[in-house]
Amino acid sequence: MGKKEEEEKKDRAALLLERKKITFNLVLLLAASFVVLIGVLTMAWFAKNTMVKGNGPGISAKDGKGYTISFLENSTNGIFSDYYDAIREETDPSVLVMGMTADSNLDNYESTDEGIVPGASGKMSFYLTPTGNPVDLKFEIEIVGYVSSVTDDEITMTELDDGDLKDHLNGHVFLFEEYDETTETYAKPILPDANSKRVFTREFDSQELVNIYWVWPEHLSNLVNAYNGTTITAHTLVDDQGDDYDDIVENVCAYPTYYFRSESAGATLNNLTETKLTSEYVTYGSLYDAADNDIGTGVDYILFRMKVTVNEE
């Protein structure tokens, strides 16, 4: 081996060593960055984790955005929490669990409650408290269905992947902002949009008890006035002369798959109008009931999920 070759070999070895050093340092730096990143995020998670587990008055959520959310005195997480816990890690462990009481629940408070069925109704309540200036908030609600199975005491929850059933949950569990107990009439429906989201906004000057009224309408005639003087009675949930009624009918016609079983219905769901719904009530009432049945047999649990943000619009 010549001197020149020897020197070249040494140079190559030195270069290789240098590269190794650089690579090692880079890996070290990246690892350190990840450690910092994970560390900060974990800390943020702990700081954010405001899950409400216990009971008691004035359970408060978190501050820093100009308001707090808290639940009713002596509220609980509801009686189906074993099943709920099975999905909590998947959803977001930092979420607040809506407090349930005897008067404010989803038919999930007492041991005798068996869940919701067509015809069931109720309300869920929480306190919204501005911590400084008045706040304008946006509430975005979605309802997610789950199918459960239990094997050897192990609960498995599977989010619905059936498009029809997912759609039906939008049109069969109704939400309202207001309810008049005297006239038994609801107002301000929180209707689903094309993305299966239900949005309402509200301004808060001081602490307010927010009620969200829920109804699973038993019949299509609870939504559309199909009164015909004989077999179909008039019992719509909202005043059928008002804007709320028009909004509901418009929603039914715009998103028929939210309300009706589409199977074997074919073109019957195209170009719906109030006149068509009422004049062919036997067909549409039956398809509405069929969708009820499909939910009852195909969905085991539902998750009511509400996102609260400051209204930027």
């Binding site: 978190k62 509801g78 038919d107 999930n108 649990y301 996102k307």
Partner: peptide, 11 residues
């Protein structure tokens, strides 16, 4: 943002 959840059964 706040996220609030409630959970129930479909009978």
């Amino acid at each position: 943002e706040d996220r609030v959840e409630a959970f129930t059964k479909i009978k």
